[in-house]
Nucleic acid binder design. Sequence first.
DNA 1: AGATTATTACGAAATATTTCGTAGATAAGG
DNA 2: CCTTATCTACGAAATATTTCGTAATAATCT
Lengths: 141, 141
Amino acid sequence: MSKAPPPKPTDSELEILHVLWQHGPATVRVINDHLSQRRQAEVGYTTTLKILQLMLEKGLVRRDDADRSHVYRAAVREQETQGLLLDKFVDAAFGGSALKLVMQALGSRQTSADELAQIRRLLNDIEIQNSTANSDDDEHA
Amino acid sequence: MSKAPPPKPTDSELEILHVLWQHGPATVRVINDHLSQRRQAEVGYTTTLKILQLMLEKGLVRRDDADRSHVYRAAVREQETQGLLLDKFVDAAFGGSALKLVMQALGSRQTSADELAQIRRLLNDIEIQNSTANSDDDEHA
DNA sequence: AGATTATTACGAAATATTTCGTAGATAAGG
DNA sequence: CCTTATCTACGAAATATTTCGTAATAATCT
């Protein structure tokens, strides 16, 4: 009885997680520099520090405080976190229909031929999985 | 000079918009009943009223106050609103990559054969549009 | 009419999130 | 050693969102 899954990150927390996922473990200074670049305005150093401290309490990051400048790293995986957020978002914005979301994402923006090809490959993979999983239905073939 | 596009709805506002999109114009009472059902706990009547009043100011809903019980209706379209939210979400959660979002949505959940077929149709449509839109490049053919 | 009920308007408390200032400690430079 | 810079911890202000209580008004019922 010790598992309390980390909660859904807030917007700021997610922004920090992006930095950690892409950059790897980093100090507050490094993270803050990245955030400041990503936005128009400077981000206060202690603002970033504070959010990281809150994230630590929530279990979203871990830290190594061996040195004076603590080093933070993500404690949640990118894909899992995105999956969690996606579930919530599908519910909130698309009434739970992932299909509608995909249709909207593909329909209302320009998608390159290369990306379309990737999606087709994924569709093929999924159908193969579906058919092997359903082999009871198909056994006559 | 009179266009101020309605802002991104909050979570509660979106929940109300869902009711209005599905049910059509409705009174506070009706909307509140729907919300109360959708959740575990009762929602205070004046809570719903208050949010609707704020939504009115923001231009997210319109109201007919001819009768004593005002009738509210959505002032933003479902698809447009979802598109707006999707853009923000793709940026925040997937670093701007709609492709990643689609892959995640399709990959990490079960998708029926019927849904897969719908997506294939959409992909075909998009490719046709891409090729006719690019006819400048292809005119030599 | 008088009492009860339903409704709107409005202020403000409750909650969540973001932001920053200040204090204290530690390191680094001169 | 003293000054300056950097860092952490912490409190709290600023902002956004949600929730609800109260008062005023209008409709309904007996």
